[in-house]
């Protein structure tokens, strides 16, 4: 076949400005440049919003539960309200994204461990119920005992809320998500901690635990996202370029600024004259920036995956590479991931 001059498309895989291309000389062939896999029909903002709100609600619920146990009434209140509000809005976005919203309850027909969306529905349903009950008790002052039990249940489910969505994206044939399955849960975990802690800062209950949660979460979010951009093979390219790259750079800027503002409050108070008003403003800005960064991170991750779905290079080139490795006789199994 060497002398063949194919009239069908043969294209160099994109290297952007040639920087850090994982497959430096990758020729690949395709059918009229069409995508190989079907790009998801999931919409923006529905799905990024669902990811962001679910994560924020999860951390807020855990903060509220521990606040309850340690007697921090203000943090308990804001946490319960954010958790319930986030859960309800996240479900609303999920339902809105369905092709047949009126059949939403079919999600509860079965429990399937092979379907992250099924598992997720069975985490989201009790989480939404528990946090909703806790918030109702908080607002009305009725049944505080039941409210405490519900709040604790929500707090226990909270961490699961923050990371099942990473599996939801990774468990697809979308190269930019599947190849990131080790990193994505930590990106989402950090992003949720930053936003959940940040929501308490906005509410004015940021002192102590929420501030620490927000700053630690932001650090995790930044570090894990950096791995997406560098360590996941060819798809890393999609996280650095195009709209996804721009959104993720904006996310990083917001998160870094948010961390700075979150740390600034207590520091300025210590060195300068104490000013509750200034602290309040700084904390609110910090919380808003961290939430903006978190939401943008989800959007950027979503967009990067979409880019790798539309461009057949991201599917063909890595698959060709592992076929070549297999033919070279390293005996690896089909689809064995190239060593990282």
């Amino acid at each position: 076949m060497t002398a063949q001059v194919p009239a069908e498309r043969r294209r160099r895989s994109r290297g952007g400005r040639g920087e850090q291309l994982m497959v430096p000389d990758a020729d690949f062939r395709s059918y009229h440049d069409r995508p190989i896999i079907k790009p998801p029909v999931w919409k923006v903002p529905d799905v990024p919003a669902y990811l962001y709100l679910g994560g924020t609600a999860g951390v807020a619920a855990s903060l509220a539960a521990l606040a309850d146990l340690t007697g921090r009434a203000g943090l308990r209140r804001s946490g319960r309200l954010v958790a319930a509000g986030g859960a309800v809005t996240s479900v609303a976005f999920l339902i809105h994204d369905l092709g047949r919203p009126e059949r939403f309850l079919n999600m509860m027909r079965v429990i399937k461990p092979t379907s992250p969306l099924s598992v997720g529905s069975w985490i989201l349903a009790p989480f939404g119920t528990a946090t909703g009950a806790a918030a109702a008790s908080e607002v009305t002052g009725l049944l505080p005992g039941a409210g405490r039990v519900a709040g604790l249940a929500g707090g226990v489910l909270g961490p699961a809320m923050t990371t099942y969505t990473a599996v939801l994206l990774a468990d697809t044939a979308v190269p930019g998500w599947h190849e990131a399955y080790r990193e994505l849960p930590f990106v989402f975990a950090g992003s949720a901690l930053a936003a959940g802690g940040g929501s308490a800062l906005v509410a004015g209950h940021g002192d102590g635990p929420p501030r620490r949660v927000a700053v630690a979460g932001a650090a995790l979010e930044l570090a894990a996202t950096h791995r997406l951009e560098t360590a996941i093979g060819m798809s890393a390219h999609a996280y650095r370029t195009g709209r996804a790259g721009r959104v993720l750079r904006a996310a990083r800027a917001a998160t870094v600024a948010g961390v700075a503002a979150a740390l600034a409050g207590p520091v300025v108070d210590r060195v300068g004259r104490r000013s509750p008003r200034r602290r309040r403003l700084l904390d609110a800005a910090a919380g808003l920036l961290l939430n903006a960064g978190s939401a943008a991170t989800r959007w950027g991750v979503f967009d990067a995956g979409m880019a790798t779905a539309w461009d057949p290079a991201y599917t063909v080139v890595p698959q060709r590479e592992r076929l070549a490795a297999r033919e070279a006789g390293d005996g690896s199994a089909p689809g064995a991931t190239v060593d990282r």
Partner: peptide, 14 residues
């Protein structure tokens, strides 16, 4: 089917 769309990007063949 409720149109959740999960099967669509899951199929490795599009």
């Amino acid at each position: 089917c409720n149109g959740c769309g999960y099967c669509i990007p899951a199929c490795p063949y599009g």
